[in-house]
Design a protein around this nucleic acid. Sequence first.
DNA 1: TCAATTTGTCTCTTACAAAAGACACATGTA
DNA 2: TACATGTGTCTTTTGTAAGAGACAAATTGA
Lengths: 267, 267
Amino acid sequence: MQDGNDVIDQAVLGPAADKASGSREKGLNRVLEILEFLHVTQRAIGIGDLAKGVNAPRSTTYTLVRSLVDAGLLEMEGDGNRVYFGKKLYLYGMDYVRGNDLLRRGRQEVDNLSRETGETSELCMLQSGRYTIVHSSPGTRPFRISSATGLQIPLPWTASGRLLLAGLERAAIQDMVSESDLLLPDGRRLQLDDFIADIATAKTTGYCITSGLVDAYTKCLAAPVFAAAGKVEATMCLVVPIDTTADKTDELLTLLRQRAARLSIAG
Amino acid sequence: MQDGNDVIDQAVLGPAADKASGSREKGLNRVLEILEFLHVTQRAIGIGDLAKGVNAPRSTTYTLVRSLVDAGLLEMEGDGNRVYFGKKLYLYGMDYVRGNDLLRRGRQEVDNLSRETGETSELCMLQSGRYTIVHSSPGTRPFRISSATGLQIPLPWTASGRLLLAGLERAAIQDMVSESDLLLPDGRRLQLDDFIADIATAKTTGYCITSGLVDAYTKCLAAPVFAAAGKVEATMCLVVPIDTTADKTDELLTLLRQRAARLSIAG
DNA sequence: TCAATTTGTCTCTTACAAAAGACACATGTA
DNA sequence: TACATGTGTCTTTTGTAAGAGACAAATTGA
């Protein structure tokens, strides 16, 4: 543990982690934490470090990892010391895609949209109360707008976040947003009331544009994808340079809204 | 439980399941069985049926499913009664793809190959000792050659199986193949020695062709993909009509072997 | 070369999760 | 109306899995 890994250790796992700290923990929960930890580190990791990372006893971690490797959910990496996700998880993931029309078609639409426009395009959803980039297609610009699939970003930082929360009660919104979520990357602090007002606006206009929220160089156009009953199930969005002309932006927005509508459940 | 679900119930989960039957079972193992069960049923299922399916107490199943749903590994289906795989599993699966060069490039090559040839093409690997179709691309023929991703087929039924076992000891091969695996779909019984001879042949020739093994209308061309150290890590294969001419078959085989070689680790 | 760490495997104890089963409430059907 | 079947949530009991700790072997590096 010579490098700076220890920094991420605690912060990463939601508030669920380390509750009573030191108390005995259900094996399944440990496993869920292990998976989540691997998801955020995004690379193979030694079992010892893993134990530290999820704050679990070494002996326990060894037995759990062995079970998971035997089951194929995890795999030992080349040198036989470190572990990462395994083929089984990939197969289960593909099962999910197959069973989920919206995701399957959404991936397709996003890929098309980014190919046609040349801009980065994303499909976003709420994932256990958090904003998640479910699929993204990079676009053709020379400078790469980074956006890893599965990345979780505070809802108030994004245009999609405003659409995904449309139709929720004030209380529900408040529950989903922590104080630190309202602190933007550039240091400004967003007022909860302003955020809720944004959400209401987005709901009525049927789209949302944010400029320079996540970073200073991009703006984000987002349009809602409706499930049955008019609930916002997902959003499609385009990430474009912040200096994109108003005309061009309008053009892209129209296209985006059209495609998002096509994804929505008819009726 | 009006339909014939009960038939699959026991047979599906490996020998690991129901060992002592009735004995107390580790929660994690129950979860692994649940995931595997959902994988083979390939659709959402009620919690009661799920409990029967994995042969677990109803109360236990309820609590485990709740944990998994909270964690996002499973999701409640529309009506709020049945469960299936959740977004989290999809995200973890994508993580696996990202961290796995071979799979990422292999999917690409398979898609290309089936587009260029018009034939069904697949990427296959060993998954905890079993043959698994990791990715498949359907081809353009009017009659659809079915081959679901994640499908597990006995090794002796396939051309890929013969390549994947190349270089293994006789004992190791014997361990991986059960008696029932040697019974082909058409009723014929394969001799273990013949199978092992096939494997040796495949190893030296560097490809394998089987005709009418899985079904009477197709033949399967397979070529090995090597990891470092000359180990067969995967295979690419083409599924073509059994009456494909020898010339055409040769042509396809050459192309297939070329692409598989390209996938292999250099050196 | 010899400490200092880390790794993987063990054993033993007890805190607690899995299981059994009872309950209230829906359905469907004779 | 009664009867069977399925669902979701409780309790209580007890078998055992999680955890602490010790160990040898491998790795580091001073």
